[in-house]
Design a protein around this nucleic acid. Structure first.
Lengths: 339, 339
DNA sequence: CGACATTATGACACCGGTGTCAGGGTTGGA
DNA sequence: TCCAACCCTGACACCGGTGTCATAATGTCG
């Protein structure tokens, strides 16, 4: 037998029509049990597999989801944010559990990214994942909605469509971190991250953090903030610049673990002890966090649940079901960097 | 316009036949330049995208590769080996660079994994990635070859088909590690990992390591070996058991970084100082390695190059070109755990 | 025994492109 | 003027399935 077997080949050998083969293989109740058995046997013998292209073409759906992973173009190319890798893992698993395949694609945040996986019928829906400047995205989101493209995104909120977003309760997470530092009476706190509308997730973390301090009658000093994107390098440099400017603090909240790790490096280098001189709290609970020196206290995001919710919500959207906004509860992981 | 536009819609609005639309969009030289321009305009207006299912069905190829990631079933489910995640990243990028999409799928090593992505025409070829018990795989490999399925795999060697494998020079890497420890005169060395034919990569690392010692007239003590799979937990327990058995050593070579990190934890717990009492060397250079305490000396595998070679070689196989066996050179990264 | 429901199957159009072939129109050389 | 060459286009079969419709065979009941 040259080439791959088709349903016609099976039909020939099983002595039935091709239609019957198709029905038999999909367990249609219309087919006689004996016939079905015969068809299955022949199919197995010929190592037959349904041609997904033909099947998808006819049914107009692909049983495939696409994952677009946005990378901060300013970040080091070779390293991918471990938090998103963890998400990728859980999304992959969630897809498999639902019988869907997953197409993975990396996108640069700057370039005008293409979301044509759905237009071209390669995927039934799209998952958008990544930090990045979501201000620019709203226009893109609108056009996706207009074209009736099914998608969900992590973190970034889509104007007027809370149902398209799954995210961690970043605000609540920020409060958790603040409450923890306040319990240890570390009131003189620095913040490293981007607390602007360009990074809605970081912004929410900062807001929660600030509000918790405010509720304790403490106003954060704006001079003790430094901008950073979510890389170790960036966190390192931001913290260095604070130190270089003689800014003092006895605790530090980083908008992400990578930033926190870079901050710890800068602190150590300057002879500042963690946690004795400065308590450090990060966000994400990436795998590395427990191996740093000292181990990093951090606000955990449940990536397993997050992946599941993204996939579940997307499938609901595809099926036309109603979806609620999904906010996942964060939890505080206390380690050596703050005790 | 309800539903998505097809080439017939474009043909209608552009006043040409559907055949011409198809040709025009694929930049066939047969089409008049003016006609082409008109077609492109209409296509853009209708936000037309070629239906991949139809296209793939007709051309019998998918411009898609599938990545099967094997996980050690005994490992913690929620954590994925960071080394493979790094590989996943570089493979994704390499695919994109070649204009291919990537389907990602996790497989359990134990279950009889399905490689039907190619049979079902969802992918043109398959990349196999993962540690694991490759002895069981040889039969599967044979059947893949027999069915003329295009695939390459990382690490594991396929009987008589070196061209289907891309791997790091694990043997050479082991020698690098050994030479490094010998330079510091740390001759009393323990090995943590699985040095059996079940883990060909670990086995090769151990062989190179042992041979280098032998060439210096030193025979490794088999009692100072402990089995471990590539997880932190496993490395921790293996090392603990060595310590519990009162086995002494002044250096330790771990078959992977995760094992090394677990080993360091066990050593610290037992009051053994790294690197003063024991020099530790790992393998992989995962991202975590530079953040451990002390930072981990390790043998680096070039994941970027590895991903590229896997994709390049697979595409060559698909195109029917000849492929050479690909061995990537490792390099030693010296950090605090061994100086 | 005839009317009718039930079961199992085959024939066929269809999904949306791609590739082949035939043919119309124009140009150029003899 | 006629034929060949060239350029461009349309008609149509085809990829390998799925879904609908028609129909043959069998069973059921009055």
């Amino acid at each position: 037998m040259k080439g791959k077997a088709t349903s016609f080949d099976i039909a020939h050998y099983a002595g039935v029509s091709q239609s019957t083969v198709s029905r038999a293989l999909r367990n249609s109740p219309l087919v006689n049990e004996e016939t079905r058995k015969r068809v299955f046997e022949v199919a197995k013998q010929l190592n037959y597999k349904v041609d997904k292209n033909a099947s998808n073409l006819r049914t107009q759906q692909s049983s495939t989801l696409a994952l677009l992973l946005f990378e901060d173009p300013t970040a080091d190319e070779s390293q991918i944010n471990p938090f998103f890798l963890a998400m990728l893992g859980s999304i992959t698993r969630a897809c498999a559990a639902q019988g869907y395949d997953l197409l993975v694609s990396f996108q640069s945040t700057s370039a005008d990214w293409q979301a044509d996986y759905e237009d071209s019928h390669r995927a039934d829906g799209i998952i958008l994942l990544g930090y990045g400047d979501y201000v620019d995205y709203q226009a893109k989101f609108s056009s996706l909605i207009e074209q009736n493209t099914k998608f969900v995104c992590w973190g970034a909120s889509v104007d007027n469509r809370p149902d398209l977003t799954v995210s961690c309760d970043n605000y609540g997470g920020g409060k958790l971190a603040a409450a923890h530092l306040l319990r240890a009476n570390r009131k003189d706190c620095a913040f490293i991250g981007d607390a602007s509308e360009h990074s809605p997730e970081f912004f929410a973390r900062y807001q929660g953090f600030k509000d918790e301090f405010n509720q304790h009658g403490i106003t954060l000093n704006e001079r003790k903030m430094a901008n950073a994107i979510s890389t170790e390098e960036s966190g390192y440099h931001a913290t260095r610049s604070l130190i270089a400017n003689n800014i003092h603090f006895n605790s530090l909240f980083a908008a992400s673990d990578l930033i926190a790790i870079g901050a710890i490096r800068a602190l150590k280098e300057a002879g500042i002890k963690v946690p004795d001189d400065v308590h450090v709290v990060g966000f994400d609970n990436i795998a590395v966090a427990s191996f740093t020196n000292p181990p990093l206290t951090t606000v955990q995001q449940d990536t397993t649940l997050a992946g599941q919710m993204l996939v579940d919500n997307l499938l609901k959207l595809i099926r036309g079901e109603v979806v609620e906004n999904t906010l996942l509860p964060p939890s505080l992981i206390i380690r050596g960097s703050s005790v």
